[in-house]
Design a protein around this nucleic acid. Structure first.
Length: 425
RNA sequence: GUGGGCGUAGCUCAGUUGGUGAGAGCACCGGGUUGUGGCCCCGGAGGCCGCGGGUUCAAGUCCCGUCGCUCACCCCA
């Protein structure tokens, strides 16, 4: 168009009716979180840059090139959060939540920011639903987190999801593995340019290169799971055992590495069709070194993030019935006066009511009522006003009845209640 | 950052080898009912054809540039 101001690249307006579906997704999530004993925390969108630099890893793409970072008026370097886990840990420590014994379980929902080229399923402002459990490192908790995640997705009506899982081991295993992998990578020829770069910076990333050629070369690469020490091995085996026992289908993905440096042991991803190249709807894993890294005691943690924008893309259609609405159609100034008062009265009764703020013909008003999905329209003109009555029109059939203006709110409430009962049957 | 595709009405899109007046469907407004919605019929409003430059007698159509959107790479949710 002309030079009207547009939304910033990679950021979108969320409009009705879609906004309603987002609310529904969030409501379902909250309900399932509550069932599993996870409580909501709401966190700032802005943090000191150092928090992310230290937790996510200075060499990761997120930190190296994707953060929205700026200096505030005080000279502090601040960053719009690119992910939630680091923040959750920060809040956990800052508020002394780690001091009590046992597991602490949280969830948080909100926007994250990464400066990337937008594409399908990837935006500069995107939205995550996060679950985090801190303080205990037992395989049962890993399984709980995965079950929780799958439960949410299932309650949202998603099917045909695939759970990919791997163990990244602990830092000790990783040192061993990286050494072996580095040797392997150096001995082979034919890596793509990106992998040559990764080989130097972070060899683990070579593992999930999408180039067919590199994947072929990787067929004989050492596997993380062969480098796990006894504890990590036992932990991983137990996770898999429990998943099997609960009948949760999974696919072991020995080359699943994930792009944040803090992951240890269990790492997982949920993928779905229909998302294009960005097919991960959710991902997560254990982060046993993170709390300590951020200055706290050596406490473990595990969590996941659901990509809400991607989730919305694959959500099955399901139209929720519109709430019953009453529309007030008024003809002429005196009737409009009465109608406006009546509008307030109906709403005070808890009824959803609306009227035409433009003074238009009855025809136009009924047409509006129809568009809004009103179940009843109250018609109020001079004739009705003179008799102290109104016409009440059912919008689905068109039958009309006359009701006294006195006590109209209660009468309509009764009508609506009966309506609801009938729908339930 | 790199590459492909696309920018015509609020939305989805037509627009033939460049050739009188810029179109359709949906949505919107009005009429067909003196005070009665949906369906139907009639009418109306709404476009610097993304922007700038060039070629040409003539550009929505061809060329260059630019901005934007989109998909993909990188990487992740």
């Amino acid at each position: 168009m002309t030079d009207t101001i547009r939304a910033v690249r990679g950021m979108k307006d969320l409009l009705p009716p879609e906004s309603r579906r987002w609310q529904q997704v969030e409501a379902v999530s909250r309900e399932i979180f509550a069932r599993y004993g996870y409580q909501e925390i709401r966190l700032p969108l802005l943090e000191r840059t150092e928090l992310f630099a230290r937790s996510i890893g200075a060499d990761t793409d997120i930190v190296a090139k994707e953060m929205y970072t700026f200096t505030d008026r005080h000279g502090d370097s601040l960053t719009l959060r690119p992910e939630a886990t680091a923040q959750v840990v920060r809040a956990y420590l800052e508020n002394g939540l780690h001091l009590g014994a046992g597991v602490k379980k949280f969830f948080t929902i909100g926007p994250m920011f990464r400066y990337e080229r937008p594409q399908k399923g990837r935006y500069r402002q995107f939205h995550q639903i996060n679950g985090e459990a801190l303080g205990v490192d037992v395989p049962e908790l890993d399984v709980e987190v995965i079950l929780l995640l799958l439960d949410i997705l299932k309650h949202l009506g998603l099917r045909d999801l695939e759970l990919l899982i791997n163990s990244l081991g602990c830092p000790v295993c990783q040192v061993d593995f990286k050494a072996r992998l580095t040797i392997f990578l150096a001995r082979r020829e034919g890596w793509c340019d990106d992998c040559l770069r990764r080989r130097a910076a972070n060899p683990l990333r070579v593992l999930d290169c999408k180039s067919q050629n590199c994947q072929a070369l990787l067929m004989e690469a050492p596997l993380l799971r062969d480098c796990l020490d006894d504890d990590c091995r036992r932990h991983y085996d137990r996770v898999l055992e429990l998943l099997s026992r609960f009948g949760v289908p999974y696919t072991e993905q020995p080359r699943l590495v994930r792009g944040l440096d803090y992951y240890t042991r269990t790492a997982f991803e949920v993928t779905a069709g229909g998302l294009g190249a960005q097919d991960a709807v959710a991902g997560g894993g254990r982060y046993n070194g993170l709390v300590k890294e951020l200055g706290g005691p050596d406490l473990p943690g595990i969590g996941f993030a659901i990509g809400q924008d991607r989730l919305m893309e694959i959500l099955p259609e399901q139209d929720s019935p519109a709430p019953p609405r009453i529309f007030l159609a008024a003809l002429g100034p005196p009737a409009r006066e009465t109608a406006f008062s009546l509008l307030r009265e109906l709403r005070r009764q808890g009824l959803a009511a609306e009227f035409d703020f433009q003074d238009r013909s009855l025809k136009a008003q009924l047409s509006l009522a129809n568009r809004l999905g009103a179940s009843f329209t109250v018609i109020l003109g001079d004739r009705e006003l003179a008799q102290g009555r109104v016409l009440v029109r059912r919008m689905d059939g068109g039958e009309q009845q006359t009701l006294p203006l006195d006590g109209l709110a209660a009468a309509l409430a009764a009508l609506i209640a009966r309506e609801k009962d009938e729908h339930r049957v």
